[in-house]
Computed example of a mutant assay.
Amino acid sequence: MTDEQLLRYSRHILLDALGIEGQERILATHALIVGAGGLGSPAALYLASAGIGKITLVDDDTVDFTNLQRQILHTQARVGTAKAESGKQALQAINPEIDIVPLQQRLSGEALDALVATADIVLDCTDNFATRHAINRACVHHKKPLVSGAAIRFDGQISVYDLRQDDSPCYHCLFPEGEDVEEVRCAVMGVFAPLTGIVGTMQAAEALKLAAGIGESLSGRLLLLDALEMEWRSIRFKKDAGCAVCGPTEDGQLPGYLPRSDADRGSADGACRLA
């Protein structure tokens, strides 16, 4: 680490659990953030400020005036700008020494699979179940840790799915694809602005812990927040032995993995399905 890095990250280095070694691991990490909206904004800002070495920021949308209530990566001056590019400008202003790769595109199929393969950690900050399940399949396929958050109205949730651990459940174990689930979005139902900040910041915290190799992640545990009452609930869940995505077959392959093309856009604040 350079003298400037030792100074910039000194408050991390002072933490006994993290230290220079942990910060060096953070600096060597590539984080893929899918969605540069309400959740992706605080997550990306904290990862950049903490020194994640490379951030690939993916979003196919442009900044809209209605985003400014909560999507803190963006400014009124950048309304109409691609969110990925607007996000890059914000992140570089905070930490110009890290590598920011903005991608304005819809991720699906082989493109999503290939991008997940290059990352060390994936943050799902998207707003629909098709994309969430597509990201989960790719993360299971490549055994990449997935930090998933969601926020709608006053309700938030966050968990980690880390298939580097044999007993870790995946997103499909908890929320099976194909079930009759009502998908709600901020454009229709609204979202409390600080809620996206709370959940997105927690996603950054979980990602940094994974990058540094410290603490215990939320793998196997779903945190639920009722921000109106400001009450947290924690629900433990286990791997589904019959999961169509992460359950092994006789030949040891993953039965449910297909780089499907039905994944939609990755943006906004996260479709929220609460237990």
Rank of each mutant, 00 (worst) to 15 (best):
D120A: 06
S219A: 07
P194Q: 07
C186A: 15
L112D: 03
A36C: 14
P102G: 05
L6C: 12
G40T: 03
A31P: 01
E229N: 13
T118A: 14
V188C: 13
S267D: 08
G156I: 06
L218E: 08
E216L: 01
Y161W: 09
F237W: 05
S41V: 02
A50F: 08
E4A: 15
D226V: 01
V245E: 02
A263V: 01
L73Y: 12
R70N: 10
Y9R: 04
L258A: 15
G37M: 05
I121F: 12
F192N: 11
T62I: 11
I26Q: 03
Q157A: 12
D16L: 01
L15G: 03
A77K: 15
E231Y: 09
G35E: 06
A130M: 13
H172C: 00
A31T: 04
D59G: 05
L18S: 06
I13G: 07
A150I: 09
L224F: 14
E110F: 05
L7F: 14
A43I: 02
P145K: 11
I198Q: 08
C272N: 14
G247K: 04
D251S: 02
D155W: 13
R153C: 05
A193R: 06
I235W: 12
K144Y: 00
D226L: 01
L103D: 02
L195G: 07
